[in-house]
Design a protein around this nucleic acid. Structure first.
Lengths: 224, 224
DNA sequence: ACCTGAACACCGTTCAAGT
DNA sequence: ACCTGAACACCGTTCAAGT
C-alpha cells in the first residue's frame, strides 16, 4: 500500500556540491522550509543520506549555500551610470523578488551572521550610499538601516508564506488578515483597524519600495 | 558516571500555563534557542513531557506565548504627554532592550505572523505616526517601515548571539567581525572595508536609535 | 576518492494508564 | 481533571563497510 516516492531521476552525473545545493533549493521551493531533510534530499539524488556529507559539512552549510546561490543570482550587476537612488531601489527589489520567489531565504537571511551573501548586499547598498554624498560618519548607519529594513520585510514575507496554505492566493490572504484587523477591539487597536483597508488593497512590492524611499528621504535630508 | 541533572526544584504549586511559559523563558535565556526541548522543560518542572501538552498545544504555541510574555513586559505604557517622536523612540527601544536581554525573541518575532504581540507594537507605532500628522494614506507605509526595521535589527541581533559563545564580550565580538571586514578583498568589498572601523567602535543601542531617527526624518520630511 | 545505508542520539508528540 | 512516562515517527549525523 505504501505508494512509491516520486521516482528519483536516474543518476548519471556524479554527486557534487552544486547538484546537492540545486536539489535542496528545489526541495525548499516545493516542500517548504520543513521539507528539506537529508533523507528527502538523498531520495531525490538517488543515494543515501550519508553521501551528502562527503560534499557538505551539515545542514547549516547546506542552507547557507542554498541561500547564497539564490541571492547571488538576484544580485546581477546593475548597468553602470544609474543614479544611486535608482541603483539602491534596483538592488533592494532584486532581493525582494528573490525572497518573494523563495520565501525561505527570508528566514535564512535573518539568521545569517554578517557573512556572505548578506555582506554582498550590504556592500552594494553602501557603495550607493557613498555615491549619494552621505558623510563618511553617517554611511554605516544609512546602509545598516536599509539592510535591516530589507531583512525585516523578508522575515515577515517568510512568516506569511509559512502561515497559509500554498494554494491560497495573495488577495485571499490579505482579505483574511484585513478582516481580522477590522474586527479588533476598537479601544486597543484603533490605528490597526483604521489601516485594515489599506492592507487589503496594497501591493507588497510597491509598499516595499515606498519603505525604501522613506529611508532614502531620511538619508538624504541633510545632504541636499 | 552520568551526572545528575541540576535537581529540579520541588514542585509545590501545580503545573500551569504560566509556570510552563516562565520555565520556557528561563530555559531559552540560559540554554539558548536550541535548549528549549519538552524533555528539558519537563525536567525543570519535575514532570514528564506529556504533562506539558495538557496546558499548551505544542512547541509553536509555547514559543509564541514566551515571546508574548517578554514583549508585553517591554511595552509598558509611556507617560502621556510625550512627543510622538520621543514616544516612538521609547517604544522601539523597549523592544530593542527586550531583544538584547532575550536574543531568541528576535528570531521569534521575525517568524511571528502579523498577530499579537507584533500587532501591539505596530499599533503603538501607528498611533504615534498618526500623532505626527502623517496623512492617512501614508500611515500604513510609515508604521510598516519602522516595524520592519525593528524586526530586521532583532533578527541580526539574534543571529549574532547565536554566532558566538555566550562568554565572549560584545567588544571582543565586534573586534573579530571588524577585523574580518578589514581583511576583505578591496576590489569586491571597498565600502565594507571602509566602515570596518565604525563597526568596531559603535554602540548597538545608539546605532539602533540612529536608524529609527533616519526613518522618522523620512516620514516627517513632507509633513513640515 | 566516493558512496552506501544501518545505527545512534536525539527530537516533538501521542496515548494508555494511572491518580 | 490532571499527570505520567513509555512508545512512535521522525530528525541530523556518524561510520564501518563497500566500490
Amino acid at each position: 500500500m505504501a505508494s512509491r516516492a516520486p521516482r528519483p531521476e536516474r543518476r548519471e552525473e556524479p554527486l557534487s556540491r552544486e547538484r546537492i545545493v540545486e536539489a535542496a533549493i528545489e526541495l525548499l521551493d516545493t516542500a517548504g522550509e520543513g521539507g528539506l531533510t537529508f533523507r528527502a534530499l538523498a531520495d531525490r539524488l538517488a543515494t543515501g543520506p550519508g553521501a551528502i556529507y562527503w560534499h557538505i559539512a551539515g545542514k547549516d552549510e547546506l542552507l547557507t549555500a542554498a541561500t547564497d546561490a539564490v541571492v547571488a543570482r538576484a544580485l546581477t550587476p546593475d548597468p553602470a551610470g544609474t543614479q544611486p537612488q535608482e541603483a539602491i531601489r534596483a538592488l533592494a527589489l532584486g532581493v525582494f523578488d528573490a525572497m518573494d520567489a523563495h520565501p525561505w531565504i527570508g528566514t535564512q537571511l535573518a539568521r545569517a551572521p554578517a557573512q556572505s551573501p548578506l555582506l554582498r548586499v550590504f556592500e552594494g547598498i553602501g557603495c550607493q550610499v557613498q555615491a549619494l554624498g552621505v558623510p563618511h560618519a553617517a554611511q554605516f548607519t544609512a546602509a545598516s538601516a536599509l539592510l535591516n529594513y530589507i531583512l525585516g520585510v523578508g522575515g515577515q514575507n517568510a512568516a506569511n508564506a509559512r502561515g497559509h496554505r500554498p494554494d491560497t492566493s495573495r488577495a485571499e490572504f490579505l482579505d483574511t488578515v484585513s478582516a481580522s484587523w477590522a474586527n479588533l477591539d476598537p479601544d486597543e487597536f484603533a490605528f490597526t483597524r483604521s489601516v485594515a483597508g489599506q492592507l487589503r488593497d496594497h501591493d507588497d512590492r510597491a509598499e516595499f519600495v515606498a519603505g525604501i524611499d522613506l529611508i532614502l528621504t531620511g538619508i538624504t535630508a541633510h545632504t541636499g
